[in-house]
C-alpha cells in the first residue's frame, strides 16, 4: 500500500515540477522584452533602421587603455614607469624627461606614454597598479584598422601636463 501511495505521489510531484519548468520557459517565450541580444551593426549609433535599442555597454568592459585628461589638458601620470614594469606583454613604454620645476628642483615628467594596442591582453594590471590612477579602460571596441602602426598609440595628449597635486 505504501509503495502505491509513493508511486502516485511520485507521478504527481514529477508532473508538477515539469509543469513549473514549462511555465518558466513559456513565460520567457511570451515576453519579448526579456531578449538580451544586442543587434550589433544596427544599434551602433543608436538610430539604425532595425535597432530598437541603443548600444548598451557595461562599465566592466575593457575596450582599450586610455589616459583621461581634464579640461586644462592635464593628466595624472607622473611617469613613474610602474605600469611598464607590470605589463606582462611589454605593451607599455614610458619615455620620461627631467624637467626643472617651479621650485627649482629637478623632476621627472612624462614625454610619451606609448601603448601598443595590438599587444595588449586587457589584463588591467597597468590600470590597477598605477599609483596615481592615471589610467583607465574606455569602452571603445571597434579596433580594426588597415595599418598595424595605427595600433601604437601615445596616451598623453600633445602639450599636456601633470595635474597639480599629483606626485
Amino acid at each position: 500500500m505504501k509503495s502505491i501511495i509513493e508511486y502516485i505521489s511520485g507521478i504527481y510531484r514529477g508532473l508538477r515540477s515539469l509543469l513549473i519548468g514549462m511555465s518558466v520557459t513559456g513565460k520567457y517565450f511570451f515576453s519579448p522584452r526579456a531578449i538580451v541580444t544586442q543587434q550589433y551593426p544596427e544599434n551602433r549609433h543608436g538610430h539604425g533602421k532595425r535597432s530598437k535599442k541603443q548600444l548598451v555597454m557595461f562599465d566592466r568592459f575593457k575596450g582599450e587603455v586610455v589616459m583621461p585628461h581634464d579640461a586644462n589638458n592635464q593628466h595624472k601620470c607622473t611617469g613613474c614607469g610602474i605600469c611598464e614594469i607590470n605589463c606582462p606583454n611589454g605593451t607599455i613604454e614610458i619615455i620620461s624627461v627631467s624637467k626643472v620645476g617651479e621650485d627649482g628642483k629637478k623632476k621627472r615628467a612624462i614625454e610619451k606614454h606609448i601603448y601598443r594596442l595590438g599587444m595588449c591582453s586587457f589584463c588591467a594590471l597597468c590600470v590597477k597598479t598605477c599609483p596615481s590612477k592615471a589610467l583607465e579602460f574606455s569602452q571603445e571596441f571597434e579596433h580594426a584598422v588597415f595599418d598595424r602602426t595605427k595600433l601604437v598609440k601615445v596616451l598623453n595628449k600633445p602639450g599636456s601636463s601633470l595635474m597639480k597635486g599629483v606626485e
Binding site: T25, Y28, F29, P32, A34, I35, V36, T37, Q39
Partner: peptide
Amino acid sequence: KVCAFIQNRVGPN
C-alpha cells in the same frame, strides 16, 4: 525561433 525566444535571444533575423 522558439528556442531563441525561450533563451532570451532573437534567433535568425
